[in-house]
């Protein structure tokens, strides 16, 4: 259990049966960042967007209130929790599951918006999120079949490690959940009002990207 990857020496492991979550300086920092943003989502009030009608003095405010506020806050907290879990996951399949959970939560954050354009982007993002589970789970399954384990601990100790094709599949899967060029759909989602919740979309994909780099370099 003592191989140091790019992430440095792990200083704390949290075992859940076969799935051992671990905190290295790297994953702990990412975890802390996700935790911080989740707290911001819990505590802060959403922004108010103002639309000025062109050529006049009239404007209208697009606030997030009532049930919609509660729903979106719930979704962004769920997204934060999924991101935190993905940051410290020590198991390839478990990581892919939490990545897909982040994808569903992101759809949820913008689902309450009534703008057709945002919903259009959310729909297209959703389809990519569905099909991205195939390379994600496929990569994990090929890893299991060819190495006999899913644990990142064991994989990093192995000489051969994860096969190239499994790595490629996992990176394609995480790309689908929100790295360029598929980020375009997410950028459109950003037009939705309600700042701290919408920012969660970006934070989660950034953290996911950083984590997948760590995993692929370690195993």
């Amino acid at each position: 259990m003592a191989s140091a990857g790019v992430a440095g020496e792990p200083f704390f492991a949290l075992p859940f049966g076969d799935i051992v979550n671990y905190f290295t300086p790297y994953t702990a920092v990412l975890f802390g960042f996700a935790l911080l943003f989740t707290l911001i989502c819990i505590l802060s009030r959403p922004e108010q967007q103002l639309d000025v009608v062109f050529g006049t003095d009239a404007y209208y405010a697009k606030g997030v209130t009532g049930k919609e506020l509660r729903f979106r806050r719930f979704m962004s907290i769920a997204c934060g929790c999924a991101t935190m879990a993905a940051m410290v996951s020590g198991d390839v399949f478990n990581f892919t599951l939490f990545v897909s959970m982040v994808g569903v939560c992101i759809i949820g954050i913008v689902a309450a918006v009534k703008s057709r354009h945002v919903l259009d982007a959310a729909y297209n993002y959703g389809i990519i999120a569905i099909v991205a589970t195939i390379p994600l789970f496929g990569g994990a399954a090929i890893t299991l079949a060819t190495t006999g384990t899913l644990s990142i601990w064991e994989l990093s100790a192995m000489a051969s490690g994860m096969p190239l094709i499994a790595k490629m599949l996992i990176i394609v899967g995480v790309m689908g959940e929100g790295i360029a060029p598929f980020y375009a759909a997410k950028a459109e989602l950003f037009r939705a009002p309600g700042a701290p919740y919408v920012i969660m979309i970006h934070v989660s994909s950034l953290l996911m990207f950083l984590r997948v780099v760590e995993i692929l370099l370690t195993v």
């Binding site: 897909s100 569903v104 759809i107 689902a111 259009d120 729909y123 389809i127 569905i130």
Partner: peptide, 13 residues
């Protein structure tokens, strides 16, 4: 579950 969420988005849209 992703299918469920996305199809509901479609209906709303």
């Amino acid at each position: 579950s992703e299918l469920l969420a996305v199809s509901e988005i479609y209906l709303t849209r």
